[in-house]
Amino acid sequence: MTIKRPIQVTLLLAMLCTGSAFADGVKVTANGAQPSLAGSSDYSSGAVVVDMLFVANEYSQVSGAYVTFAPGARAAWHTHPRGQKLIVTSGTGWVQEWGKDKQVIKPGDAVQIAPGIKHWHGATSTQGMRHIAIQEAVEGKNVEWMEQVSDDQYAK
């Protein structure tokens, strides 16, 4: 099942699930307290699951999520206004900057993507991959989605 919902709505849902406003101090959101979200077919190909870790709030415009890609699954081409950081936690994947060769990413690898760089990331064709994605919003928007990664682009 694919849930089609813009990223801002997804983040709003996550904020409602976690309570974006909290008093100064320490807030723990228990593992499993938030529902997993199916990746939208508008922004990805294949089976993708997003598990929000934290969302932007009045203190910080940074959000983070576990993103799990089944073999062959990948994000569409996209950019981030303040860049993105990925930390691979399991499996094997690929990341590619527009116009450059794709790179293999494995558990423990940290990927830094500069602001405005058109890129995609996802699993290899034979292995799934999970990473933590961290990005910052500008005026409430943390990603600009573009076209899907074609099968030819993915295979190169």
Rank of each mutant, 00 (worst) to 15 (best):
K4M: 06
R5C: 10
R5F: 05
P6M: 12
V9L: 10
T10L: 14
L12N: 10
L12Q: 13
M15D: 13
L16Y: 03
C17F: 01
T18Y: 04
G19D: 13
G19V: 12
G19F: 08
G19N: 11
G19Q: 13
A21D: 14
F22Y: 09
F22P: 00
V26W: 01
V28H: 11
N31C: 06
G32E: 11
A33L: 06
A33H: 05
S36V: 07
A38P: 01
A38V: 00
A38E: 08
G39P: 05
G39T: 11
S40A: 11
Y43S: 04
Y43M: 08
Y43L: 04
S44L: 05
G46K: 12
G46A: 10
V48G: 04
D51Q: 15
L53W: 00
A56N: 11
A56C: 01
N57R: 08
Y59H: 12
S60Q: 06
S60M: 09
S60Y: 01
V62R: 05
S63K: 03
A65N: 15
V67A: 01
T68G: 00
F69E: 02
F69I: 04
A70E: 14
P71N: 07
P71K: 03
G72A: 02
A73C: 09
R74T: 10
R74S: 10
A75T: 15
A76D: 09
W77S: 09
H78T: 10
T79F: 02
T79V: 13
H80T: 03
G83C: 11
I87H: 10
I87F: 12
T89K: 13
T89V: 15
S90H: 03
G93M: 04
V95P: 01
W98P: 00
W98E: 15
W98I: 05
K100S: 14
K102P: 10
K102R: 15
K106E: 11
D109H: 13
V111S: 09
I113R: 06
I113E: 09
A114C: 00
G116H: 06
G116D: 12
K118S: 05
G122V: 02
G122P: 03
G122T: 04
A123L: 07
A123N: 11
T124W: 05
S125F: 01
Q127H: 14
G128V: 02
M129W: 01
I132Y: 07
I132L: 10
I132V: 15
I132D: 04
Q135C: 05
V138C: 02
G140M: 10
G140A: 10
K141I: 14
K141D: 06
V143A: 14
V143D: 03
M146S: 12
Q148W: 03
Q148S: 13
S150D: 06
S150Y: 04
S150G: 06
D152C: 00
